[in-house]
Design a protein around this nucleic acid. Structure first.
Length: 129
DNA sequence: CTTTTGACAGCGT
DNA sequence: CACGCTGCCAAAA
């Protein structure tokens, strides 16, 4: 049991998966937000990474910037959104209202992910979100 | 090395 | 609101 979740080389995908796992129920992030938080890559990279997200990953909390989800997953995602009170049936998620605002502890983890990716730490994020 | 490909974003029509 | 086009950036072929 060495340490814990076996030190992965942490690829971009790995970082995306971990970040997604940090998002609590009742909150969401857009693919672009994920990329911004990690300090590199783009929305498409985040999406590609999510396509290979491991079981247990709350993928429905990572959505499009317009509050929708890819067609193939829209139905399942909506079910979760309703369960978490993120949206009403037939409605998209209101990003402005439910965008995740990381806790101080979460910021530390995010910072660690940025560092692991070889990106500059977020010294003073201020408010890019 | 070049080209293709995406669970995307944003703007114009 | 529906399309279409461009930008984006890493991984895979």
């Amino acid at each position: 049991m060495t340490s814990d979740a076996a030190e992965k080389p942490l690829d971009y995908s790995g970082a995306v998966h971990r970040l997604a796992a940090l998002v609590p129920a009742g909150a969401v992030l857009s693919y672009k937000d994920v990329a911004e938080l990690l300090g590199s890559g783009g929305a498409r990279q985040a999406g590609k990474a999510m396509a290979s997200a491991p079981d247990g990953t709350p993928w429905w909390r990572i959505i499009r910037s317009n509050g929708s989800m890819a067609d193939a997953l829209a139905e399942t995602a909506e079910r979760h959104w309703i369960a978490e009170e993120l949206a009403a049936p037939g409605r998209h998620v209101n990003m402005n209202r439910y965008r995740w605002n990381p806790s101080d502890l979460a910021w530390e983890k995010i910072d660690a992910l940025r560092t692991a990716l070889g990106n500059p730490k977020m010294s003073e994020i201020d408010d890019q979100l």
